[in-house]
Design a binder for these strands. Structure first.
Lengths: 77, 77
DNA sequence: GTGTGACTTCTAGTCCGTA
DNA sequence: ATACGGACTAGAAGTCACA
């Protein structure tokens, strides 16, 4: 009976780790990105850790804050 | 005072139209994809029309149902 | 400047109907 | 096989305090 719920996707982890990597590559803090994307920094921190099931609109805003297309941010490297 | 809310992202539209295109390319119905991704077909229909702010886990499941990586599904063509 | 847990608000996502 | 609407519930969005 327990839930047949879906587990967190691998893509969620990819997104989180790439988000963090690209942020660091640009020398930005969580607070910087939060300001650019108009979001709460602690929320973004949770995303980077893959703890939240982020929506496409928020992913898009974050990709925009980093100046890169979303599909590229999701591509593992 | 108008809402400071963010408008639907362009990526949402890209995802929807590419999802539909790739589904058709494979000759699959909404019901087929819904079964493969373990989702409601009428919800997927809304996604294809760009009406919903889909989460990454659901996007990932849909990409998986089509047998392609998520980043590729999000790349405009 | 960041990790994390707890919390409330709001919408994503389900399920049913009709066409 | 698809569109679309209504009503509901699971869970994402968004915030805060404290380490």
């Amino acid at each position: 009976m327990p839930s047949t719920k879906r587990p967190p996707s691998a893509d969620r982890i990819v997104f989180g780790s790439r988000l963090r990597a690209e942020r660091h590559r640009r020398g930005l803090t969580l607070e910087d990105v939060a300001a650019l994307a108009d979001m709460n920094w602690s929320y973004i921190a949770g995303l980077e850790r893959g703890e939240r099931n982020v929506s496409i609109d928020n992913m898009s805003a974050l990709a925009g804050a980093l100046g890169m297309p979303l599909w590229e941010l999701l591509r593992p490297n």
